[in-house]
């Protein structure tokens, strides 16, 4: 994996790395992708029709409005103020 690809993938994953971490992970990723590359040798093509036989038919709940968790309980694990999540200023 080249550095440009690495940086693009890190941006997608919302991750940042120190130079040391980046060098270590870049080396790991190169080794990991070598392992993953072996799937390219399999002479197979994904057939979406086949999967229909294996996929369970989901039994979904009816879309009825029901009481949810109390706001205070949901906020107990977050920095919050006036019953709202606190985030850095987004709009000036």
């Amino acid at each position: 994996m080249d550095l440009q690809t690495f940086n693009q993938i890190a941006e997608l994953g919302k991750l940042t790395f120190s130079d040391t971490e980046r060098d270590e992970l870049l080396s790991d990723m190169t080794e990991i992708i070598d392992i993953m590359d072996t799937v390219k040798n399999a002479d197979l093509v994904y057939d979406p029709l086949k999967d229909n036989k294996n996929v369970f038919i989901n039994e979904l709940r009816k879309d009825n409005a029901e009481p949810s968790f109390p706001t205070a309980k949901i906020l107990q694990n977050a920095r919050n103020m006036n019953n709202c999540f606190v985030v850095p200023k987004v709009v000036e």
Partner: peptide, 19 residues
């Protein structure tokens, strides 16, 4: 995310996004 996740988790996120 960078402070909260450990090395193996970061590797898997990177691999997943790459794939």
């Amino acid at each position: 995310r960078s402070e909260g996740f450990g090395r193996e988790v970061k590797r898997r996120i990177m691999l997943g996004n790459y794939a």
